[in-house]
Each structure stands twice: as C-alpha cells, then as structure tokens.
C-alpha cells in the first residue's frame, strides 16, 4: 500500500494500479490511513514548487478574515476611514464653533425694547445713553456691534434721548425715512410709522438729520424743531421757545398749546385708554392751552370740568361730559 499511496500522491498510478489502490483503500480503516499519512507528513520533503507566494497570501487573507483580523484590503479601508476622520474631525469642530458663533450672533443680533399702549420705559444703552420710550415705541440695537465703530440704533415711535457725549463714536438713529446723527445731545424724537410727520425737538447739543427720501441734511441747534413730512421727505426747521413741551410726556405731562379741543380729547383718550363722549355743539372750535398730567385721570377730569364747566360721568372706561 505504501507504494500505491506514494504513486497516488505523485500522480503516477497506472489505470490498473488504480483499481488495486481503490480496493486496498476501501479495506483500510481511518486509523491505518492516519498512520500512513503521518509517516509521509513527518518524513518526506514535499515539492514546494506547486504553490505561489501570491496563492499563499490569498489563503492568509481568508484566514485573517476568518479570525477577524483586518487583512491589507480591510486595513486600507480602515486607513481611509481614519484619514476621513482626521479630515472631518477638525471640520466638524470648526463648523461647530462657526455655527455656534453664528447662532450666538443671531441670538444677540438685535436687542429690542418696546412699549405697549400706556407703557413707558427708560433704558440705558451700553454707552450710557439714556432713552425714555413713550407709548407704543420700540428701539433695537445690536449689542455686539453697538459702541464698536459707532452707536447705531433703529427706532420707531416717540422717545426722549439723552445721548452720552462721545465725539469718536456717532450715535445714529435709523427711523422711518430718517437718519439722525448726533454726538452728545438731549432731544425728543417722534417718528411713528403710522404718523404723517416726524418731529425732532432739540434741547441741547447739536443734531444732524438727513431725510432718506430727499437725501437732504439739516443741522439743528438747541431750541429748534425739525418736522419732516413723511410723504415728501421734506424737512422743515422751526425755532420753538417752548421746546421742552415736546418731552412733557416724559415728565408725566401733556402740554397743549392752542390745540383744538377734539384733538386734545383724543390725546387724553389715547393716553388713558378711555372713551370720552362730549355732548357739546360749539366746543369743537375751541382751542386749549395748558398742561395736563399723564398719570392722574381724576386731575385731568377736574381740570376739564373747571375749564369748561361740565360734569364728567365715569362708567367703566367711558367718560361722558355733560354740560349743565
């Protein structure tokens, strides 16, 4: 059998020998066959030219794959992943920082202070400028850029500005149709989106005021008032000795000078959020001059009762004036 086994392995069996070999093999049990194999394994040199290094590497590759070790192919993949991670990680970090900053900029972009009806508020801006907002007004600014190059704000409504003096950084107000540039002043500004005119009443310092529509610029001196027609953009500058009247609201007063009676009533209605019904025929043509408090309705009614000799009747938020 050893001879036949050798010939079998070396492919030198003749067809006749094959028949004999098959017969002997079928008679042999596994243990004896193992003994035969062990001998040839241990004692023989084996032709090592039958296999190429490439083939052995390929087998090793599948061995490695089987035992869960990355072969060269897989390690290339891993390498690629690592390279990708190396590139992407800083990218992620930067984009995170960038987005965070963007986000915080967005969040801090505009700080808005606004007042509702019958609300007033005084705010102090980062540079020390004080702004008192009248009812239904709003002021917005960007805390990041404010007081960097200049001090820029957006404004709507009526406000009393006490601008902190800083000659290096202009205080700029962007309002409806207006761009107002000051360095350090005190003035009252009324630019309501719903109004037809804007008014700036300067108490101290100087203000340069430009109409965006016409592009014309005016420089105001104290006790001057600029009135802009919102439709045409034209600015008219007038001198006004009673310039502080404009900011009377701020001190809790409403100042009327030759104001038509109904216009005054309307101002009171708006200020106190009440409805006033006046039963009179010729009082419409009357004009009123005087100061009325903004925070004491009883006193207002008393003043009016005394001035016009009528009786005020309050029912809820409705006031009826009836003449005796």
């Amino acid at each position: 059998m050893n001879d036949l086994d050798y010939k079998f392995r070396k492919n030198t069996l003749s067809p006749k020998e094959l028949i004999e070999f098959r017969k002997k093999l079928s008679e042999m049990d596994d243990e004896n066959l193992e003994v035969l194999l062990r001998e040839s394994w241990n004692d023989e040199e084996h032709d090592t030219t039958l296999v190429s290094a490439e083939q052995l590497n390929r087998i090793k590759g599948s061995v490695d794959a089987n035992i869960g070790i990355e072969s060269k192919h897989i390690s290339f993949y891993k390498l690629a992943m690592r390279a990708a991670a190396a590139i992407l990680l800083p990218l992620f970090v930067f984009s995170t920082i960038y987005l965070y900053q963007q986000n915080s900029e967005i969040r801090s972009e505009d700080l808005i202070v606004s007042t509702q009806q019958h609300e007033r508020a005084t705010i102090t801006l980062p540079d020390g400028t004080k702004v008192t907002l009248n009812t239904q007004s709003s002021l917005s600014y960007n805390p990041k850029t404010y007081n960097q190059k200049n001090r820029e704000i957006y404004f709507d409504g009526e406000g009393y500005f006490q601008v902190y003096k800083n000659l290096n950084r202009s205080f700029i107000i962007n309002a409806k149709g207006l761009r107002i540039k000051v360095l350090g002043t005190v003035f009252n500004l009324s630019v309501r989106q719903i109004d037809n005119s804007a008014e700036l009443s300067l108490e101290q310092g100087s203000v340069s005021m430009r109409s965006i529509q016409t592009g014309k610029e005016f420089v105001l001196k104290p006790n001057q008032k600029a009135i802009m027609n919102q439709q045409t953009g034209n600015i008219k500058v007038v001198s006004d000795e009673s310039i502080v009247d404009a900011s009377a609201w701020k001190r809790g007063d409403m100042v009327f000078r030759n104001t038509r009676f109904l216009s005054m009533i309307k101002t009171i209605e708006e200020n106190y959020n009440i409805t006033i019904i006046v039963n009179c025929e010729n009082c419409e043509r009357d004009s009123f001059t005087g100061t009325i408090p903004t925070n004491d309705l009883n006193e207002v009614l008393e003043i009016l009762e005394r001035s016009y000799r009528f009786k005020a009747n309050i029912e809820g938020r409705q006031v009826t004036f009836s003449f005796n």
Binding site: F8, R9, K10, N11, S40, W41, H46, D47, T48, L50, V51, Q55, L56, R58, I59, K60, S62, V63, N66, I67
Partner: peptide, 27 residues
Amino acid sequence: SKRLYNYSVQFTKSSVEAEEIVQDVFV
C-alpha cells in the same frame, strides 16, 4: 503554509480544496 499546502494538494489534487485545508487549519 507552503508545506501544508503542498502536502494537502497531493490528496485533494484540486488547488481549491488544498487552499481550504490550509485555511481551515490555520484558523
């Protein structure tokens, strides 16, 4: 591996089967 392959291929005659034996043994 070389020795095992060359030994195995004597019995399998086929290279594919000899490769399988080598792979199996080393795993």
